[in-house]
Amino acid sequence: MKRVSTKIGDVFSVKVDTDNVKCFQLIAFDLYQLNSDVIRVFDEVYPIGSIPDLSVIVKSEVAFYAHCVTKFGTKMGLWEKVGNTTDIGETSHIIFRGTSDYGTKRGEEPIKISRNWYVWRLGDLQTVRVGDLEGVNRKAEIGLVMTPYDIVDRIKTGNYHGFYPGFL
């Protein structure tokens, strides 16, 4: 199998149906979350075979940010690299969230709403315990490292299909 290498600035395309793709870009590695890749996924849909210049793609609206392993998705054939650009946008506003209320003990129902959240900004090595998500923290993305399948599902549907607690 061919060795796949990725680097910050790489732009990838993902088929969303038989005729269209969406794009995302590797923008950082998050030391707090296993040094995993951080991507920004763009809203714009393009017909297969007519992906515009990278400078146009990276200026389009961002749908979401996520942690994943871009190499795995490439090896699995779920997305393909279309180029690289040094324009990775502003990253200081990106916030992720996590909670210890994830998962269940045997015989118990999953916790549907957590009031035990922590958040961190991309680039920070420390989290801040916030309890309830309020203000800007309500926009924090789930900070788990997602599988390539999870990323494709969210690109296609706007949601992750696995369980994770919500907030008030």
Rank of each mutant, 00 (worst) to 15 (best):
V152W: 04
I113H: 08
Y118S: 14
G123T: 02
L122A: 03
T86D: 13
D150W: 02
S55Y: 06
V16Q: 05
L31R: 14
M76Y: 11
T6Y: 06
I57Q: 02
Y160D: 06
T86M: 15
A63L: 12
G107R: 13
L168A: 15
E141H: 07
N20E: 06
I94T: 01
T85V: 05
G73K: 05
V56S: 12
R138T: 15
R115V: 12
I39V: 15
I151Y: 08
Q126V: 06
V82G: 08
F12Y: 14
T70A: 10
T147E: 05
N137T: 05
T91G: 01
W120D: 04
E80S: 10
A63E: 13
F167Y: 14
F64G: 01
E108M: 15
I51A: 08
N20S: 15
F29H: 15
G49L: 10
D150R: 06
E44I: 02
G77A: 04
D150A: 06
H161T: 08
L54V: 01
A28V: 00
L125M: 07
Y149G: 13
K156G: 05
T157W: 10
Q126S: 11
F163S: 08
E134Q: 09
K71W: 07
E61P: 04
G49R: 10
G9L: 03
D132A: 15
F42Q: 03
I95K: 14
K156C: 10
A66C: 03
K75M: 04
S13R: 14
R40T: 00
Y160H: 10
A140S: 14
Y65R: 00
D124T: 02
I111P: 00
C68K: 04
V41R: 02
E61C: 14
D87S: 11
S92Q: 10
T91M: 04
T85W: 05
I48C: 11
E90L: 05
P47I: 04
Q25D: 02
I8P: 00
F163V: 03
D43K: 14
G135N: 13
Q33A: 11
R138P: 07
K2W: 11
G49E: 04
E141R: 14
E134F: 14
V69M: 09
Q25N: 05
K81Y: 07
K81V: 02
